[in-house]
Design a protein around this nucleic acid. Structure first.
Length: 488
RNA sequence: GGGGUUGUGGGCUAGUUUGGCUAUGCUUCAAGGUUUGGGACCUUGUGACCCCGGUUCAAAUCCGGGCAACCCCA
């Protein structure tokens, strides 16, 4: 692939910065030529794959098993869902096979429920089959009429979904909590993305769910980025798709279901957008497709020394490989400065510079992507130093992200205040609000109009904050504190 | 959902107002040479007017439609 120049705008100009990072750090290639469908080249795809791996690992620890469903959904199955769950999918229809029209049309799969639950109704017979917990990695395809953007809104995008079945609602609710923990482990602990866990307002939940919970973060342009969703489905789908089991007393009962759907590309967008800087990507150590890059510093007049430098680089590379890290020697023809910029653009966490100086001293120069300060390290301490600096890099990323996020929630006590804040402030604003049940929808609509697109994200899912005072929209007694932000 | 802008080698771009000449420059890529501690340089080379239709002696340029990307508003 063609090498790219660096980023030519500051991150403050987020929209343009993001487009450039996506293209220049080889995260996605938008030239496929079909709206909303992009190509993920190696660098971007490896990051995507790593996010999948984290989720798979955590879900499997929690007793989920993988499975794989077809790329298509029968029209009749989709319509069952539409009828019972009031869900209108915007799907791509497959209507022909060769030149013959199909008897029953099918859709490229948007959401998984409509294809998975008819099969669940066959698989689940008795209480001994429960709980049933499974997941699949897959593509999500649907016709999004809004402006598409790589990683933020596509018509096809990598997705992940778990679909769990329980004998009781209590067990389902426990799973919802478990999903929160998984979100925290993957999104925050591993990927250093801070977020707020919301319970969505009733009018904005997944229509087929009893309740919808979402970890939402804020991007540097101030817009909300929903990273995942957990739905407490109650028995709505069980009834629509007839998923029943025989309980211990031999009586037929409908199952209780939950599902968890992390948006892989939204998560990737958060990593890129939140951690990155003016020079490009910054990646946490563990997720990086390449963790350590070794740059030899060569001089054409010192042939014998060059050989020593290159040999040293390869030696060190072997050592690092044996330690289990992803490492590469960049011995391309570009000069060192060019290489520094290029790998910084791609977010490689650690860089080792090896020149004649280092060879002589038995040392290496190490640079962390975050602060870009140079450290002299001894080759014999390589293992220790890599661990130390990987950790320090991760801490730095985490600290910056936490600081960024801390300043991203403010408080408003009147509509006027909220309006002013949303204009300047990029992030969440919390306000006293009349209700997050259906009766609050009118206020939310009005709020959206008055604030040019401010969205009621919901109340905090765990420890909802106590409200005092009045709803800033209608003046009725406030029942809850809701968070407001503009969204993608 | 509504409005707007744009489409020229792999990337960025000049030329479009006022139709005409070998389509400009930078960068990437390839080859050779000099370089190399924070985006080096020289020489040579490859490579483009989004698609379909219309107007015209003549279209990158004007008109219509399509496709795609971006921006703003709801």
């Amino acid at each position: 692939m063609a090498e790219q120049e660096g980023i030519t705008v500051k991150k403050e100009n987020f929209s343009e910065w993001f487009s450039q990072v996506v293209q220049k750090a080889n995260l996605a290639d938008i030239r496929f030529g079909v709206q909303g469908f992009v190509v993920y080249p190696t660098w971007g795809f490896k990051i995507i794959r790593r996010i999948y791996e984290y989720l798979e690992e955590e879900l499997e620890k929690d007793g989920h098993e993988p499975f794989w469903f077809p790329t298509i959904v029968k029209k009749s199955d989709l319509e069952k869902e539409k009828e019972h769950a009031n869900f209108t999918p915007e799907v791509f229809w497959v209507t022909k096979a060769g030149d013959k029209n199909l008897d029953e049309e099918f859709a490229l799969k948007p959401t998984g429920e409509a294809q998975i639950y008819p099969i669940y109704s066959l698989w689940i017979r008795s209480h001994q089959d429960l709980p049933f917990k499974a997941y699949q990695d897959r593509m999500f395809v649907y016709r999004n009429d809004k402006q598409t953007r790589p990683f933020l809104r596509g018509r096809e995008f990598p997705f992940f979904e778990s679909h769990d079945v329980f004998a009781t609602h209590e067990e389902g609710l426990k799973q919802v909590k478990k999903d929160f923990e998984i979100s925290t482990k993957v999104l925050y602990d591993k990927l250093k993305i801070p977020f707020v866990l919301f319970k969505r307002p009733q009018w904005d939940k997944f229509k087929g769910a009893v309740d919808t919970y979402t970890p939402d973060t804020v991007m540097p342009d101030g817009k909300r980025n929903q990273l995942a969703s957990t739905h407490d489905l109650g028995q709505k789908f069980a009834k629509a798709y007839d998923i029943q089991f025989l309980d211990k007393n031999g009586e037929k009962q409908y199952v209780w279901q939950t599902c968890y759907g992390p948006g892989i590309i939204r998560i990737a967008a958060a990593i890129f957008g939140i951690h990155g800087d003016d020079n490009g990507l910054i990646l946490p150590f563990d997720i990086a497709p390449l963790q350590i890059v070794i740059i030899p510093v060569l001089f054409s007049k010192k042939k014998t020394e060059n050989d020593k430098v290159l040999k040293k680089c390869l030696d060190i590379k072997d050592k690092i490989e044996k330690l289990g890290y992803k490492v590469k020697v960049d011995d391309s023809d570009n000069n060192p400065g060019w290489k520094y910029h290029n790998w910084e653009l791609h977010g490689v966490p650690l860089r080792l510079e090896i020149g004649p100086r280092e060879v002589k001293a038995g040392k290496a120069t190490l640079v962390e992507r975050t602060e870009r300060k140079k450290f002299e390290i001894k080759i014999k301490d390589l293992d220790k130093e890599i661990k130390k600096h990987a950790k320090s890099l991760d801490n730095e990323i985490k600290k910056k992200a936490d600081d960024y996020f801390k300043n991203n929630t403010r408080v408003a006590n009147s509509l006027k205040e909220l309006k002013e804040m949303l204009k300047k402030h990029k992030g969440f604003v919390k306000i006293p609000f009349c209700s997050d049940d259906f009766d609050g929808e009118k206020c939310a609509d009005k709020l959206k109009d008055e604030t040019d697109g401010g969205n009621v994200c919901g109340v905090k899912a765990e420890r909802p904050e106590k409200a005092s005072g009045k709803c800033i929209m209608c003046g009725k007694k406030a029942k809850c504190i809701v968070y407001v932000a503009k969204s993608y």
